[in-house]
């Protein structure tokens, strides 16, 4: 038996919204520690990895490891029926062919029950090796979203280059070219919210090119976190990570554009 409950069901809806345009369906792997999900886009350019810790749930019970094969568009249809402040409970039997989703309003005056049919999904799991990245940038997620959106009107590839002082996003297209640089926030700056700052940890300057189409897709997760972390290395995928307080994180890996 698998059972879990989230006070803020809305978070789960946002999570599914952050995955469903990139990956059609996938296996929720539930074990005693939490829920994980991995999936690639149909062109095998990006990988999304979701990790939810049991501590983030108000209730969590997983007697035996279960795999829930889920079509995200179908799940999203059911989650649409959830109120913004509803509590969400998910239940599944060990060998069941469906999972139940229960939405309950704050005062328990409204309870909604849905059964989602599960799928058998034969999906290859990829191992992501532990890597020391050359540059790690933390910045406001809304700022990253705006940059990706605005630059994609000019070109389809962004070059991200990082130095100790700044991270630069450059684009070129038929109409011309441009770049936007964000400077590292002053370390002595005690005023203001930490989530508003741009922090750069740099081992070595790095520069790589990425398809804006995918980055724009990743920014669907902006609603999940005030900040985003970008990790870059040489000839390795970019990691775009959104952390949700104590619930866990969603990470997107994007293969760089490489010389022919």
């Amino acid at each position: 038996m698998f059972e879990c409950a989230l006070i803020q069901g809305e978070l789960f809806r946002k999570l599914i919204a952050s995955v469903q345009d990139l990956v059609q369906d996938g296996n929720f792997m539930c074990d005693a520690n939490g829920i994980s999900l991995q999936g690639m886009d149909s062109s095998h350019v990006a990988l999304v990895a979701l990790a939810l810790k049991k501590e983030g749930f108000v209730e969590y019970r997983c007697d035996r490891d279960v795999t829930l094969g889920i079509n995200f568009a179908n799940l999203a249809k059911m989650l649409k029926c959830m109120g913004a402040k509803d509590r969400l409970s998910i239940r599944a039997q060990d060998e069941g062919d469906s999972a139940s989703f229960v939405f309950e309003s704050e005062d328990s005056s409204r309870v909604s029950n849905f059964e989602l049919k599960l799928m058998q999904i034969d999906q290859e799991q990829l191992g992501v090796p532990e890597t020391q990245y050359k540059a790690v940038i933390r910045m406001p997620s809304s700022e990253f979203q705006r940059i990706c959106k605005d630059l994609s009107a000019i070109g389809d590839t962004v070059s991200i280059s990082v130095t100790k002082e700044a991270v630069k996003f450059s684009v070129g297209g038929d109409i011309g070219s441009g770049d936007m640089s964000l400077r590292q926030s002053e370390s002595g700056d005690v005023d203001g919210d930490d989530s508003e700052k741009v922090m750069i940890e740099l081992e070595e300057p790095v520069q790589q090119n990425f398809a804006l189409r995918y980055l724009n897709n990743f920014t669907k997760a902006t609603a999940l976190s005030k900040t985003v972390t970008l990790s870059l290395g040489t000839d390795m995928p970019l990691v775009t990570e959104y952390k949700m307080d104590n619930l866990g994180s969603i990470r997107y890996y994007l293969a760089p554009k490489i010389d022919e």
């Binding site: 690639m40 799991q125 990829l126 995928p237």
Partner: peptide, 14 residues
């Protein structure tokens, strides 16, 4: 000129 890389190149099949 550049081409789009594939993600599997960087990760290990399990």
């Amino acid at each position: 000129s550049q081409v789009q890389g594939k993600i599997q190149k960087y990760f290990i099949k399990q």
